[in-house]
Design a protein around this nucleic acid. Sequence first.
DNA 1: GCCTGAATATACTGACTGGTCAAATCAATT
DNA 2: AATTGATTTGACCAGTCAGTATATTCAGGC
Lengths: 201, 201
Amino acid sequence: MARPSDSRQRLLDAALDLIWTQSFEGVSVDQICERAGVNKGSFYHFFPSKSELAVAAYEAGWQEWKLQYDAVFSLQSTPVQRLLDWGRLIRKHQQEIAAKYGRICGCPVSSMGTEMAGIDEKLRHVCQDLFERDLRYLESTIREAQTSGTAAPGDPHAIASSLQALTIGMLQQARIRNDLSVLDPLEESVCRLAGIPNPSR
Amino acid sequence: MARPSDSRQRLLDAALDLIWTQSFEGVSVDQICERAGVNKGSFYHFFPSKSELAVAAYEAGWQEWKLQYDAVFSLQSTPVQRLLDWGRLIRKHQQEIAAKYGRICGCPVSSMGTEMAGIDEKLRHVCQDLFERDLRYLESTIREAQTSGTAAPGDPHAIASSLQALTIGMLQQARIRNDLSVLDPLEESVCRLAGIPNPSR
DNA sequence: GCCTGAATATACTGACTGGTCAAATCAATT
DNA sequence: AATTGATTTGACCAGTCAGTATATTCAGGC
């Protein structure tokens, strides 16, 4: 009985695009609908509110992003290699996004999370949650590197947390300066923080 | 002939407060006026637009912040001590702000910069500019630490840039999680990045 | 005491906001 | 072919937005 439709998916895509390149409050429901080629009534057929659309869009975005994360953090490669691949993935991804949108966009979770943390508790929590998932990859990698003796000792949670903060901070600077070269010191600094020898020198 | 008034200053204060705790687009001119106890007509007497008010508010905010920076980065103390004091200043400041507003607010420059980078070129540039001023303190401190032999060698600009990114990233995480303990690994990670021995262990 | 211009006050604009609604459409099931 | 219900449509709210217009107030210089 259902009429097949990709309107819902188009709304998710449009929302992520627009919120990422601009901001949550800077983008109107009308804009999202126009980009998605969907009428406003349909919007509210699929989602109860603008916030709920954002929640769904970010959750869906993570599902895609997760595929690449699982590949990079594959247990097939050494912990050190995973960390380096992770940096490469981030840089490559930012390049693609910049080519698509014409400017450096940084991390969408960080952008919307910062913007909405003091305004919308639900959105704040979604972003916190996504960061925690990201953190788990890093923490277990650090832990494994330490037990295998390739990384200097230190609290794995604190180190992973620092790695995440460093990366997010760099992505944010890249967005504000609209310049990807901000990411240049990433690998070197990751190695220093994680206490592993830098393979590139 | 001028009627003395502190309306302008009250508008600057109100704007910084509201934009910091919420966001630029999430705060209306009416709200800013109400908080400042000023009528809308007066607002547009002093500032041509909401954006220009934000520019002025952030510039004025930096002037205050600069005093504390100059104290912390005084040439009286050793480079290492400056870096540690810097971390302490940031933590102390966040505590005060959190006590004032009831939640962790993070870095106002980073928040507004991220939000408006893709929307308002002027605001983007103001934030970029403020970060560059911050970076100069760090870079010259790193350089001095290296020449005095207390820090391991490495490109001072890249290291300072990483220190800045780490801090901004942590502040952002603290804002999103509304939890100051995110800053706990700050000193340790600063030492690792800067290549200096950690005095606290 | 009058003039000048900075400062205040408030009503107003037109565009836009997030969200609602009832009627229309259409594919799949029966 | 009739029924069903997911989907679409576009008009439509009431409220808010940034910014404007205009009249008024008031302190200092003369």
